[in-house]
Design a protein around this nucleic acid. Structure first.
Lengths: 151, 151
DNA sequence: TCTTGATCCTCCAGTCACTGGAGGATCTAG
DNA sequence: CTAGATCCTCCAGTGACTGGAGGATCAAGA
């Protein structure tokens, strides 16, 4: 028997950009955009100039999408991808990148929590009456109402 | 005695755009931008075409800045300003706006916390060794490592 | 009075990370 | 064979600013 092909796995036929979009949840123009800024390599084309992708593309695009969802900026992703493309390197850089990012996330959470408390106080103070006595307007008009000064 | 002027209060001389910027912490181009999109009214000009402002401008710009810092979008601020300009109206709208915004903030916090946990796990799992065994890269490459699926 | 430097003006282009439309070519199914 | 789906490129728009070019005007000191 030649090969044990045609197991229930997906056949390795090249993917269209639409199929890649479906598999990754990334919109087609966004995929083209990622190629244009060099996050994705230039996709090989068919005779009729259509981009083709494979499993590697799916993985790479998922990597990108996932990093974006985690809030990494494109430049950071570019660095992470370069590192991922070059295993065997010490990963101190990736680690530092992630740590920096973690600190950034924690600070964002803190600021959002302060903000939430403030808006909550605003909403709870509203007498549902008239703008004249509305805390929402008042608090926004006068920063001194705030509990925090560092948002 | 004519008037009890020159108390230690600020004199009501018109402000330049630079002074307004200093008093509010909003950059000069941003002030002009707010005017251009109609958040601030067109400022009266001097003979030599320079914008002039007064205490009302300071209050209005502080309102805008504060609302922006709280995460309100310009369109929401436009509505809030319209309400603030028209006291005596029922404030249900402002209240609804703020409540909607509060829900939005809470959801952002939740997503950021999930994200933080994930990045934290990434960082803590890093063996400081090589990319080959680096959790940062691994987690980013494969979404199934995540505790959460809704970030 | 002159001059220097600060401040102001308008207009336009760039930022980031996409998103969408126009206009046209090509593929696929019935 | 045809209709509709999908693809291509190019370009412009989003939101909320930010910054620079090139030029006018102001305030203060020598």
């Amino acid at each position: 028997m030649p090969t044990m092909s045609s197991l229930p796995a997906t056949p390795p036929s090249p993917l269209t950009i639409g199929a890649l979009a479906k598999q990754t949840g990334v919109k087609i123009p966004t995929i083209r955009y990622y190629e244009s800024i060099g996050l994705l390599p230039e996709a090989p084309r068919t005779d009729s100039n259509r981009r083709t992708y494979d499993g590697g593309s799916v993985r790479r695009l998922r990597f990108i999408r996932h990093a974006r969802e985690l809030g990494f900026e494109v430049e950071a992703i570019r660095q992470l991808l370069a590192m991922a493309d070059d295993p065997g390197q010490p990963c101190r850089d990736a680690d530092l990148l992630a740590r920096t990012h973690l600190a950034e996330i924690e600070s964002r959470i803190a600021r959002l929590e302060a903000l939430r408390d403030e808006v909550r106080r605003m909403v709870e103070g509203c007498a549902q009456d008239q703008v004249r006595s509305c805390h929402v307007i008042e608090v926004l008009a006068d920063h001194t109402h705030c509990l925090h000064d560092r948002h």
